[in-house]
Simulated assay, not measured.
Amino acid sequence: MRKYLIILFVFASLQLWGQKDIYESVRFDELSAEHSTLAIIPFFANLDLEQELSKEELGRLEELEGKAVQDALETYFGRGKKKKKFSVEFQNVENTNALLAQNNINYSNIDTYTIKQLSEILQVDGIVSGNIDLNVLLSRGVSDEVSFLDYLLGDANYGRIGIKISDGKTGKLLWKYENEITKKSGRNTTDLIDKMMKKMTRRFPYDKERKKTRKRT
């Protein structure tokens, strides 16, 4: 029995090890040198829910989940702004969404615009975007209690999230972070983003402390 428990522990550890990934362009410093303001756009959400839903209702819920991530990131970056934690400003999402609407850009057609086009419309230096795949409605809140059986049955996994930062002038991908979403990730979208970003503070490219460290090396 003990042997099987050890095997299961190793297996679980390997799963957790492969759950997150960070990419940073070798040209990040060069392309972001003059960045002062970034815009956070609604995330593209993909829901795989147990209940049967109409195409319209599914689309509505996906938009809600995508905008919940946008709001959660603004909340997190807003806290950092008060502490002067970041080297860039983040455009208010109400202004972002208003500018998008004024240009007839909505959740259903925003993917037809390039990063360069969106940056020009929003008058920013870069875009924060991404994807979130979920099998629950995270924005409504979920249980964060986890049992060993949940891991064995796969019921502890809620999906995956990817956050990207792209340069406005070139449209180039500068930085990307991907991570699994589990019951331990957070009770709702705001909690998820807060925990996730705090864990990788020194690896976020616009963190002032990280920039100081890079200059010393």
Rank of each mutant, 00 (worst) to 15 (best):
S129G: 10
K116D: 08
S147G: 14
K164F: 12
L122Q: 03
I165Q: 01
D125P: 02
Y158N: 00
L153R: 12
L149M: 15
I165Y: 00
S129C: 08
I121S: 03
N109H: 09
L138I: 03
G141M: 07
E120S: 11
S143D: 14
D133V: 10
N131D: 15
V124Y: 01
E145H: 13
E145S: 14
Y158E: 01
K116M: 13
N157Y: 13
N106C: 12
G154C: 05
L149W: 09
G168F: 00
G141W: 02
F148G: 12
Q123T: 11
A101V: 09
G141D: 06
A101Y: 13
R160F: 10
K116P: 02
T114V: 07
L118F: 08
S139K: 10
K116Y: 09
L138V: 02
S147W: 09
R140H: 14
N131H: 12
D144L: 10
T112F: 12
I161G: 03
L100M: 10
N135H: 10
S119Q: 02
E145Y: 14
I110S: 06
Y151R: 10
D150M: 07
D144A: 12
S129Q: 02
N109T: 06
Y113F: 14
I110H: 03
I110E: 07
N109S: 08
D150W: 00
R160C: 02
L122M: 04
Q123Y: 07
I161S: 00
N106G: 14
V124F: 02
G141Q: 05
I115G: 03
Y158C: 04
L152M: 12
T114C: 05
Y107K: 04
T112C: 09
N131Q: 15
V146T: 15
D144T: 15
S147H: 10
I163H: 04
I127H: 05
D155Y: 10
L134D: 03
D111Q: 14
N103Y: 01
G154Y: 08
D167M: 05
E145M: 14
I105G: 01
N103G: 05
N104Q: 15
A101M: 13
Y113L: 09
V142P: 03
G168Q: 05
G130L: 00
Q102P: 01
L137V: 09
L153Y: 11
I161A: 00
L152G: 07
Q123N: 14
I163Q: 04
T112P: 05
N103D: 06
K164R: 15
Q117S: 13
G154T: 07
L138F: 03
L152D: 06
S119A: 11
G130T: 06
F148P: 05
I132P: 03
Y151V: 12
S129I: 02
N131V: 08
F148E: 15
A101N: 15
L153T: 14
L118A: 04
A101C: 09
A156R: 05
G141C: 08
V124E: 01
S139L: 13
D150T: 07
Y158T: 05
F148M: 15
D167P: 06
N131L: 09
Q102A: 11
I165G: 01
L137R: 10
K116W: 06
N106T: 14
V146G: 11
L122P: 04
N131I: 04
G162D: 15
S143M: 12
V142K: 04
S143Q: 13
T112A: 11
V146M: 14
I121D: 00
V124A: 04
